[in-house]
């Protein structure tokens, strides 16, 4: 089985990993880097639980081979908070009650982060559209959408 050694940046840290050719980015993140916040919900690119930021764009990490991440910058849910200070999105998800079982939460947060990076003040419809690939079975989505809106406010307040 062919192995490759790749170098990438994950949550600001440089990682050098040797992976088999067929290993997915999701498997590498969870099993080689032990960053288990990124979840495996379907392994076929349909549920969004494994969403990570890949060079700033949201991707289903189950649909990317680890070797494709050579040289890439990856952010997982563990990379959102800095120095124990939650990201405004995390803070807003806490305050809005956007979390129940929590299994979709990491993917939801990352997809929301990607949205706010490209559209800092999204409309309701933009939020719903951006999260359509992230399935949640607990919350009915209402408070997740509220959470994203609240994050915009929190971010604005902290800049004032």
């Amino acid at each position: 089985m062919a192995h490759h050694t790749i170098t990438l940046t994950v949550n600001g840290e440089t990682e050098v990993v040797t992976v088999p050719a067929h290993m997915t980015l999701l498997e590498m993140i969870r099993e080689e880097l032990a960053l288990t916040g990124t979840k495996n919900g379907c392994a076929s690119g349909e549920c969004g639980a494994c969403t990570v930021l890949f060079n700033g764009e949201p991707v289903n990490s189950c649909m990317v081979l680890a070797v494709e991440a050579d040289g890439a910058t990856v952010t997982t849910v563990e990379g959102l908070a800095h120095d124990h200070q939650l990201d405004p999105l995390q803070e807003a998800f806490v305050e809005s009650g956007a979390v129940q079982c929590g299994f979709c939460t990491p993917g939801m947060l990352i997809s929301s982060k990607a949205l706010l990076l490209r559209a800092p003040n999204p409309s309701d419809d933009e939020i719903r559209e951006a999260l359509v690939g992230n399935l949640c079975r607990c919350t009915g989505y209402v408070r997740i959408v509220d959470g994203v809106k609240k994050a915009v406010k929190i971010a604005a307040q902290s800049e004032e």
């Binding site: 979840k39 495996n40 997982t76 563990e78 939650l86 806490v94 929590g102 939460t105």
Partner: peptide, 13 residues
């Protein structure tokens, strides 16, 4: 909730 938004919450897998 804090465990769950930071990715720290542990599930069986």
């Amino acid at each position: 909730v804090r465990e769950k938004v930071t990715g720290a919450a542990i599930y069986a897998d």
